[in-house]
Every structure is written in C-alpha cells, then in structure tokens.
Design a binder for these strands. Structure first.
Lengths: 190, 190
DNA sequence: CCAGAACATGAACTAAGATTCATAATTAAG
DNA sequence: CTTAATTATGAATCTTAGTTCATGTTCTGG
C-alpha cells in the first residue's frame, strides 16, 4: 500500500538536491562526511536533511545502495556478454578489476564493497549481482579457467578487503595473486 | 645520549600500571578505546596518562609496537625452525595462520596487522620480521612450494586485510584461497 | 625530618558532529 | 487571495573524547 502523498514541489526539489550533494560528498569523502557538509553542498539547512532522512545512516544507505545497484547492473551486463567474443573468465576478470579501481577512486563504492563482505541487509541489488556473478563463475568453471570450488561468496569476501589505500602497483599485484588463487586447482582437480 | 634521569618510584609504578591497562583495553576494544577507560582500568587519573605519554597516539603506538615485536619474534622462531622436521612451507603456513587467528581475537594485533600494510614508520620490529619472513619464503621457494615471484610485501599486504570480522569458516576459506595463490605458478614456471 | 622537585588529580576546556525544535517561509487547495 | 498544512531554517542541545592545567600529593636527597 504505497499511500505516500506526493511531495510538495519544493520538497521534491530539495530531496533531489540533497541526494545529488550526498552522492558527491560521499564519493569524495566517504560516509564519514559531516551532515553539515552535505547540507552546504546541497544549498539547504541541516534540518532539511533530517526531514527527508530521519538519520544520517538512512541517507548514507540510500547513496551506497545506489552504487550497489550500479555494480549489480554491471555484473549482469558482464554475464550477458557470455558467449560473445571474450571468454567468461576474461569477463570475470575485467569486471572485478573495474570494481576494484572504482572502489579506489570512489569512496561510496568503497563503502558499497565493504557491504559485500558483511551482507547485512540482503538487498535486492546484492541478490541480483549475486545471480549474475554465479552465471559468470559457472561459465568460467566450464571453460576450465576457474577452480571448481569457487563460490560467489569468495569474490565478495575478497573484494570487501581490497587494499584500497595502497598505490596502484600494490593493488595490481594483489589482484594478480587473488585471481591466481581463484584459478589455482582448476588444473589439478578439474 | 640516553640522559633520562630515572623515574621516581611511584611514577615507574604508574607507568607499568598504565601500560598493562592500555594493553588489556586495546586488546579488548582496539585503539579507539577512550583514554578514560584506560585510566580507570589502571586505577589512575587521565592526567597521569598524559604525563607518561604526551598524546594518545603515543600510548597506542607503544602497545601496538609491542605486539609487532612479538610477531617478529614468532617469525624468527619459525625461520629458525627451517631444516627441522617440518618443511619451510609448512612453517610459513602455520605462522600466517597463527597471525590471522591472533588478529581475530586480539584488537591490538589487528591494529598491528594493519601497520604491515601501511608500513608507515619503518620500525625495527618490522624489519626484523621482514628478514625472518624472507628466509622462510626463500626456503619455501627452494622446496618448490611457493611461487617464484612471491615477496614479503605480498604477505604483508594480504595480512593487513584479513577479513577479521567474519566467522571463522570464512577466514579459513579466505586463508585457503590466499595460500593457493601464494603457491600457484610454483609448478608452471619454477 | 624537610624542602623542593616530581608527580598525580580531575574538573574544565575544546572540538566535532549528530540531532532537535521553535520559528519563519512556501505551497496548494478552495 | 487566504489559510491551513507542509517545509525549511539554523541556533541550540547533546554526546563523546582528547587534552590541559591549577591545585594537592608523594618522593628523595641532604
């Protein structure tokens, strides 16, 4: 029963401004950014933030969730590409590499990545991404490029802990080792 | 020029109490524990903490460093065991597994582990541990059980990001994958 | 045993940041 | 155009935690 009476014009306008500002601020400074900063960026008073979002956590969740959704969409896109020119393993690797780099330059994605590990509230987005990732992984195993026991959770756990504050070179090295771990055994057992 | 005049008896006593309390509190609650809590645990007033440690960071560093030192000592012990009954690779694995579990149950070690990643202040302890780890790794490569390009930094990076807040089962799985990554290629290239 | 140096105490100060709420401004329906 | 309902404002409140310092104690050398 979505009996939400429509927002007043100015309220709708402000809500949009708030979401945009929060997105900008959280991307740049992470969830720890003060509410005052978001309010200022949005050109609105703090009180207004609280009218639209009862608590800071709610606002942050809205933003982080939107990034989670984007990630899920990208995962689905990658899965849909299976059977095209590139191998599933290649798609898998490209996808996760992209997520890693996003998280490194976008504090909102970074926060979203953490949620992967602690899948607190089983968001719809998480589930969507999970399904897509399963498709990718199964295809990768079929190709013989991923270890037979690799699970979606493995990927989530790993990407919740990417060394984001280290220089690129370190991240790349980390990525190589992790991917090798995801592959290893693909040959032995199979 | 260590011209430190000896501490007065009561001061020395308090310093010890403070270090013990800080250790307890940081092990249990991590570096974020309030100075007040440490003071209370030590049976001393906050002002006294500040007489002995100019800033909270100094106190925390002292504690974390002591755990870093223990870790280095354990690494050396493991390296010294090379040539004994077990293989170097086994020692390597046992050592890191132990570090992981320590970090999971001891917030001070957890903090110390983070320092491994961001080797900010090149502590003497870090260097000692690094040397020992190099011995272990080289021996492991010689045995053919570790990938030829494995470096100490790899281990540091990884263990700075162990998924400590996840259940044991998850940590174990993570450990398996990482170790497999550390091995993989040992066969291919060699 | 005493003086003066060292040390300890803990209330007060400071800084941040989340959240509230009385007051003022806007909007939309009639 | 009015008015009641909805929103917005932002100064004030509350917490939390680090740090300081005037005042009171405790040591230690002589």
């Amino acid at each position: 029963m979505p009996n939400e009476r429509p927002l007043r014009a100015d309220a709708a306008r402000n809500r949009a401004k708030i979401l945009e500002a929060a997105n900008r601020q959280i991307i740049a400074f992470g969830p720890e950014v003060p509410m005052e900063s978001i309010a200022e960026d949005a050109g609105v008073a703090v009180g207004t933030l609280y009218r639209h979002f009862p608590t800071k956590a709610d606002l942050v969740r809205a933003i982080v969730d939107s990034h989670l959704e984007e990630m899920a969409a990208e995962a689905e896109a990658a899965a849909d590409r299976i059977g095209g020119g590139t191998s599933a393993v290649a798609e898998f690797i490209t996808f996760w590499h992209m997520i890693m780099e996003s998280a490194a330059s976008n504090k909102a994605v970074k926060a979203a990545a953490r949620e992967l590990g602690a899948s607190v509230d089983e968001t719809e987005h998480l589930r969507r991404g999970q399904v897509a990732m399963e498709r990718l992984i199964e295809a990768g195993k079929a190709e013989g490029g991923l270890r037979p026991d690799l699970a979606v959770e493995d990927c989530f756990i790993f990407f919740a802990t990417v060394p984001l504050d280290e220089p690129v070179a370190v991240r790349e090295r980390w990525f190589t080792l992790v991917i090798d771990g995801f592959r290893s055994g693909a040959l032995r057992e199979a």
